[in-house]
Write a protein that binds this DNA or RNA. Sequence first.
RNA 1: GUGGGUGUAGCUCAGCUGGUAGAGCACCGGCCUGUGGAGCCGGUCGUCGCGGGUUCGAACCCCGUCAUCCACCCCA
Length: 440
Amino acid sequence: MTQFLPTGPLPGTRDFFPEEMSVRQLVFAHLYEVVESYGYLRYDAPMLEPFELYASKSSEEIVAQQTYRMTDRGGRDLVMRPEMTPSVARMIAACAGKLQLPARWYSHPNLWRYERKQRGRYREHWQVNVDLFGTESWEAEAEIFEILAEMMFSVGAKTSDFVLRVSDRALVRGALTANGGVPEEKLDALFGALDQFEKLPVEESKKIITALGLDAERVVATITAPEDEFLKLAPTEVALRSNVARVIREGLVTSQPVQLKFDPLIIRGFTYYTSSVFEIFDTDPENRRSIAGGGRYDNLVGLFGKQRIPGIGFGMGDVTLIDFLHTHQIAPAARVGADVQVISPDPAARGPVKQIAHDLRRAGLRVVTPLEPKKLGKQLEKAAREGVRCAVIAGPDELARGAVKLRDLARSEEREVLLSDLAAAVKQAVARSVSTEVKS
RNA sequence: GUGGGUGUAGCUCAGCUGGUAGAGCACCGGCCUGUGGAGCCGGUCGUCGCGGGUUCGAACCCCGUCAUCCACCCCA
């Protein structure tokens, strides 16, 4: 018996069939456009990196348990990149000498983490990474937050659809030590507990905090303080240095208002984040995972060389973003099918059909021609089902007049067009059909 | 790595307390020799996820396994 090979991709990985791919391309085109409108330059790096690039620099769990890790034939210890920031920091360090700062860079890498698949999470995902290097100014935070918001607006999100939750590790540490009575050496353990704070009943969290030898009441009172009060709980000199606090005071300049909220419970696991951290969440509870997340990492580039170059950046994940679009019913309609199919009832007309198709392609249209002889009715039916927008019917009678029939397949409208006017007429028909597409 | 749900045709699913598998949609063809989406007629399509066990007999019960979905951990 024949043993067929499986048709599906590896667990946790995805195939993108043309229909879904067209939706993705339309979405990402908006994101690239926003990022480039802020002057960011695109880069890329290898998907394989040495293990040491991540060891003890990013999240311990990701490195220890969620890496696709392998040894190459030269005995090198490699991982498929689980995140992009270490790679871009390496690249920035590599050209630090000749780099004009600030540097604004972005990329769209495929990233790999060996974890169990669930809503919003696969073993691989595509992340738009945006990073700004070379300044400690609060204006960097302002710019990054604005880009995040504009990316969301560019794909059709409204103000009420998402929240940008921001925090500052230095500020929270300051508040917890000054107001929460937490000694420095217990801060890291406490952050681990606070990461769970929203998911557990308050009493449970208090027990965990007490078990750390801390005053649970004071700690909880500190982290649950209203936003404007919290910002005053840290020592003044710490608060004055907080870029996030400054951005909240100054506000963002965006095309629509943004729900920007200070939230000390935004912790984030990457150990290289030094102060600002932030995440974007869907306001619809159907999507619980962050759509984008990032932070400031002022010491990461310093691991690769003497030059200390501060950085701030974020990743926006395709899985959560596209879940978001579907939940809010703002995903663009898939665009499959060519612009035009050139057919003829006369099999002997192959020459004119091919020539017309060639001319239309030269005019910038996406054109298909039949590969097998079929009845005209079948050809029209197939073309329409494939999503082709219009048909050019090159019959002998019309060709004798130097013309063809142009049929709008969606509207069932047909008229005779001179060959000399055909490209323009087709473009018009295609533009009309695209503008009437309904979003799904 | 941990816990729970689900695996039957390409898709969505039905299949009673075990008696050897069905519908709709889709697909292909015909009615219809230069004009599609409707209708009617016909056709293709299943190791009932996989392996083992119980039974005269298993899609159905039991065990294992794999996949998938959801949650946890972590994170986009």
